[in-house]
Design a binder for these strands. Structure first.
Length: 258
DNA sequence: ATGGCTTCATAGTGAAGA
């Protein structure tokens, strides 16, 4: 089983890349974030024509999440039940017996910002809900744009980023609290190249200079982690013409166990 | 250097992203 996540920064603009991704990787679930379009404008026909179904929760201009699957997903729910939130950042569905949770964790803007407080409150609500979800679903995957770089090696210049949003101690602590629910960062289960990142700033030739952060993650419950055979970031999609600023992350779960 | 790019909403520029 192949699970993937990708912040596409506008599904309207990135639709050709998404269709190419589906064709190349044939994921069993592709989680998308930052769709930036309304539900009514979701490009369902093109995705269906590529052999995929979709569940989604979108809004105009900002946010928006989706899960694409080859066959219909079950038990779809959107949002964090305990949290009143107008921003469409969460969608969950069951795919082949696996609970797939797609998240677009808030950016936070800057630690002085109200948006940073919103981010930390949001993470608290997410973690409380996840605790129940992990207990209810032994096979659970949490995929998405976390907007948190968990360790020094996930940041091109950890000294410069120390204390900054995406790399502040409270955010890293929130990431650890999620991991403490029993979820494993699949990327770090395997040998990876040094300076592996999933996001690069559009400005300053960030990608060409590999000035990036690893903020997109696939966390797996024990049962899935045990069966996970590979996790990789596909930089090819960041190198394309008119790319998203994020690259997709892909995890493979051994088929015999799942 | 609080910029740099890209997108959306809009018809000038401004907000937001990370």
């Amino acid at each position: 089983m192949k699970l993937a996540t990708w912040n596409v920064n506008s599904l309207k603009v990135r639709l050709p890349h998404v269709l190419e991704f589906l064709d190349r990787h044939k994921p069993d679930a592709l989680c998308l974030q930052e769709l930036k379009l309304e539900d009514v404008n979701f490009p369902l026909a093109a995705i269906n024509a590529a052999g995929y179904q979709a569940v989604y929760s979108c809004q105009r201009t900002y946010n928006g999440v989706a899960i694409l699957t080859p066959t219909a997903a079950a038990d779809v729910c959107s949002g964090i039940p305990s949290l009143e939130d107008l921003q469409r950042r969460v969608i969950a569905a069951s795919v082949n017996g696996v609970r797939v949770i797609c998240v677009y964790i808030p950016n936070g803007e800057a630690i002085e910002s109200e948006k940073y407080k919103y981010k930390l409150d949001w993470l608290k609500a997410l973690t409380a809900w996840l605790k129940q979800e992990v207990a209810a679903h032994p096979k659970l995957a949490l995929l998405g744009d976390y907007n948190i770089a968990p360790e020094d090696r996930d940041v091109y210049d950890p000294k410069a980023w120390a204390g900054k949003v995406l790399f502040s101690d409270p955010e890293k602590a929130a990431f650890k609290e999620i991991a403490a629910l029993g979820l494993t960062d699949s990327f770090r289960m395997f040998d990876q190249a040094d300076k592996s990142y999933s996001w690069w700033d559009y400005r300053m030739n960030g990608f060409k200079r590999n000035l990036g952060l690893r903020i997109d993650h696939i966390l797996l419950s024990p049962e899935l982690a045990k069966a996970c055979t590979r996790c990789a970031i596909d930089r090819d999609f960041r190198a394309k013409e008119r790319p998203s600023d994020h690259a997709p992350v892909i995890a493979e779960i051994g088929t015999s166990e799942i």
